[in-house]
Amino acid sequence: MKAIIYCRVSTTKETQETSLARQEEELLRLASTYGFEVASIIKEQASGYDLEREGILELLDLIKDKKVGALLIQDETRLGRGNAKVAILHCILKENVKLYSISHSGELQLSESDSMVLQIVSMVEEYQRKIHNIKIKRGMKRAIEHGYKPQRNLKNQGEHSGRDRKEMPIEEIVKLRNNGLTFAEIAATLRGFGITYLRRQ
Score class of each variant (00 low, 15 high):
K2L: 08
I5F: 00
Y6R: 03
C7V: 12
C7T: 08
T12Y: 01
K13E: 10
Q16G: 05
E17V: 14
S19Q: 07
A21P: 04
R22F: 08
Q23S: 07
E26W: 10
R29A: 11
L30N: 03
T33E: 12
T33L: 11
Y34P: 15
Y34H: 06
V38R: 09
A39P: 06
E44Y: 04
Q45F: 03
L51G: 12
G55R: 02
I56Q: 00
L57H: 12
L57W: 09
L59D: 03
L60R: 09
L60W: 01
D61F: 08
D61A: 10
D65H: 06
K67P: 00
A70P: 00
L71P: 03
L72C: 00
Q74K: 05
L79F: 02
G80M: 02
R81F: 01
N83F: 10
N83I: 10
K85G: 11
V86I: 15
V86P: 00
A87T: 14
I88D: 08
C91D: 10
E95Y: 05
V97I: 08
L99C: 07
I102E: 00
H104Y: 05
E107H: 03
L108K: 02
L108C: 04
Q109G: 10
S111I: 06
E112M: 08
Q119K: 14
M123Y: 15
I134A: 14
I134F: 12
K135M: 15
K141Q: 15
E145G: 09
H146W: 15
H146N: 15
G147D: 06
P150A: 07
P150W: 06
P150H: 11
R152V: 08
N156M: 10
H160A: 09
R163S: 04
D164I: 05
E172K: 11
V174T: 10
L176M: 03
L176A: 03
N178K: 07
T182N: 01
E185F: 03
T189N: 08
T189R: 06
G194Y: 05
G194W: 03
R199E: 10
